[in-house]
Amino acid sequence: MPRYRDVFRVPEFTPLFLGGAASAAAQTVAGLGLATLVFRATGSPLLAALAMFGPALAQLVGATTLLAAADRLPPRTALTAVALVFAAGTAAQALPGLPLAATFSLLFVQGLTGSVGNGVRGGLLNEILPRDRRLLGRSVLNMSVGVCQIAGFAAGGLLLALLSARGTLLTGAALYLAAALLARGGLSARAPRASGRPSPAETWRTNARLWSSPERRRVYVALWVPNGLVVGCESLFVPYDPEHAGLLFVCAGAGMLAGDTAVGRFVPDRWRGRLAAPLQMLLAAPYLLFFLRPALPLALAAVTVSAVGYAASLLYQERLMELVPDELSGHALGLHSSGMLTLQGLSATLAGGLAQLASTTTAMTLLAVTSLAVTLASAGKGKSAEPGTVNLVPRSR
């Protein structure tokens, strides 16, 4: 079984890892700062949730118009440009007196750009690492997100106290700039994985090709829907408990780190197919407790246990890569990221709307119940794998 040191021995993996970590830290710091700024200005849970997860909604537009660029641009140039766009947009959001419409317009541009960047990064990982190390490599990248969420939200809470929300946004912009420098200086120049010019028409054709397979469709739905609904629960941390929202996000990052570590490094191959659905049920079930508005220690424990279930995504991503040709790996992973983030944005919007109509705890409970129902319905359609196979995808009876 490959070890962590094996992936870090690959020269280009380290700058890819550090660049992704810097971007993740920037996203958490800037997202917390912007959500706090918007909530203080408007008092709206809906707008606060959209401020933190709004770029995800633009991913749908990017996935249907720009995603062909993920395999048709030089990876180093693309990753550098994406990080610079995020740095400039985040710095602009810190400008005093910036209208709310301009703030959300910048979020939309960042979301469009991010839809390409996620595909480029995922496809480049497949180029850098041998096939037998890719799951572990994705696990390490996911773990870095967990660590950076812990550090980012903890630092974000401190920065909010020391520098204000605008100072927190500027810190996020500086981290995005660091990601751009890491990509430019640490990655080698590579040719695009696919030939041809990126265009909306090519994006549509490739999306249709990927979506034409029933098995790939099942994997995408499993990657997008249950997780997206739980992110909707997380989007309400600020209105649920403004004073301890950063701590709740830290616990979510810690749980995700633990789950990715366990699945990526220690779970044997023969168990992986059986764990995907149970992990997604674990992801949603703890949020049922929020209907009772638990005390802070119990809420923190529930969030931590829940986030372990995010590791199910590693298993579904592994299956997705088995179902697509290498030259479309960036587009396929970009479609996954865009769809996942779009569902997260829609769920955050739904959560904010429900919270305004009812309460934050009611919204969390309804989203958790729906996530559990989707996972159980999908698992009920599956069949057990034959010996020696990995059956990660629910199959029709």
Score class of each variant (00 low, 15 high):
P96W: 00
S105F: 07
V82G: 08
F104S: 00
P99M: 02
T77A: 08
T80R: 14
A92G: 12
L79D: 01
V82T: 13
L84R: 03
V82K: 06
A94S: 13
A102M: 14
L79H: 03
F104M: 00
G97N: 02
A94Q: 00
V109E: 03
L107N: 05
S105Y: 03
A91K: 12
V109F: 13
T77L: 10
Q110S: 06
A83Y: 00
R76D: 08
L100D: 02
A92S: 15
A91T: 10
L95Q: 15
A87E: 06
P99I: 01
L100H: 03
L106G: 01
F108H: 06
A81C: 13
A92F: 13
S105K: 03
P96M: 00
A78D: 09
V82I: 15
L84P: 09
T80N: 07
L79T: 02
Q93V: 13
V85F: 10
P75Q: 09
T90N: 05
S105D: 03
G97Q: 03
Q93D: 10
P74D: 07
F108Y: 06
S105P: 03
P75G: 09
V85M: 11
A81Q: 06
S105G: 08
P74R: 12
L84G: 07
L73K: 05
A87K: 05
L84V: 15
P75V: 00
A102W: 15
T77D: 05
A87Q: 12
L98E: 11
A81E: 08
F104Q: 02
A91I: 06
P75E: 11
T80H: 11
G89S: 14
T80F: 15
L79G: 04
R76W: 03
P99R: 01
A78V: 09
P96Q: 02
G89F: 01
A88K: 08
A91D: 09
L84M: 15
L107V: 03
A101P: 11
L73W: 11
P99C: 02
A83V: 02
A102H: 09
A83N: 07
A102S: 14
V82H: 13
L84A: 14
A87H: 06
T77C: 04
R76E: 04
A92N: 13
V109G: 07
A78Q: 10
A91G: 11
T103V: 14
T77G: 13
L79E: 05
A102R: 13
F86M: 13
L98I: 13
Q110Y: 03
V109D: 05
Q93H: 10
A92K: 10
L95E: 14
A94T: 02
L106D: 00
L106C: 09
T77W: 05
V109L: 15
A87M: 09
F86L: 15
G89Q: 01
R72M: 10
A81V: 15
T90I: 04
T90Q: 06
V109I: 14
Q93N: 14
L106K: 02
G97I: 00
A102T: 10
Q110M: 15
L73D: 03
G97L: 00
R76V: 04
A88G: 10
A91E: 08
P99F: 01
Q110A: 04
A101E: 13
A88Y: 05
P75L: 08
G89W: 00
L98K: 11
L73N: 07
L95T: 15
A102K: 12
L100S: 08
A87P: 07
